[in-house]
Design a protein around this nucleic acid. Structure first.
Lengths: 118, 118
DNA sequence: TTTACATATGAGCATTTGTTCATTTGTTTG
DNA sequence: CAAACAAATGAACAAATGCTCATATGTAAA
């Protein structure tokens, strides 16, 4: 005990509280996955892509045009969004259409907006 | 038009959709702030700190002990959390107690959990 | 006022991240 | 089949990030 908290004399540590925190903390995997999920929302390019998809499904080219970014940049970000199950894709001929994977995406972004708009 | 979408021949672009997306996209500042907010949640150390504060307010030393990290590392992250108004602090003697700034924090994390737990 | 303790902070460094560029893959049309 | 187009992908590189270490600041007790 006190292994990492050599910063202070342990007399300032509230042991009961710390113990409770330790038992109630989600497991490492959950914490990691949760952080990874939010990391995906933590980039304005990806947020803009998601907002764009609020309207309707769009192909890579549409997104590229709407966000004024290269096809490659958009495509890379779409892969990341897809890996994290925030968007899904559907191929139709030469084009691939992307859309939101589920309603969680909308809810999470709405909560975020709530916070920054105070 | 088509400035950045040299990837494709514009014949694949759905102009009406793209136009609608452009008018409905939030302004740059909002998008940036939103991404910045989620970026804060996008790190497992910070997520762990927030989870710990679900229990009760804790001093830096408690957090350092609970998360098994140095006081400096915790302190740096707390500053970031404070700057983004996710936690607030209260000094009591030599110690500084941190707690969640508001309920949005809980709601946002809950939504994130919902998503990863499918 | 000196000493000790709790926290904050700046600089440095290794790692991660987002974009670009070049190329490849998949699909349709001639 | 070859040619053209839409999208995906790997490598490279600059920028951002999170931690460590050393030190500074703020507070209380001796």
């Amino acid at each position: 005990m006190g292994k990492h908290a050599e910063c202070c004399d342990e007399q300032c540590i509230h042991q009961e509280l710390v113990s409770k925190v330790l038992t109630d903390l989600p497991d490492e995997d959950t914490l990691y996955d949760l952080a990874e999920l939010f990391k995906v929302f933590g980039d304005s390019t990806r947020v803009r892509i998601l907002f764009a998809l609020f309207e309707s499904e769009l192909c890579v080219c549409d997104l590229s045009e709407a966000l004024a970014m290269t096809q490659s940049a958009i495509s890379h970000q779409l892969q990341l969004l897809r890996t994290n199950k925030l968007v899904k894709s559907r191929r139709e001929g030469k084009q691939v259409y992307y859309s939101l994977a589920d309603e969680h995406v909308v809810t999470i972004i709405a909560q975020g907006l709530n916070h920054i708009l105070e």
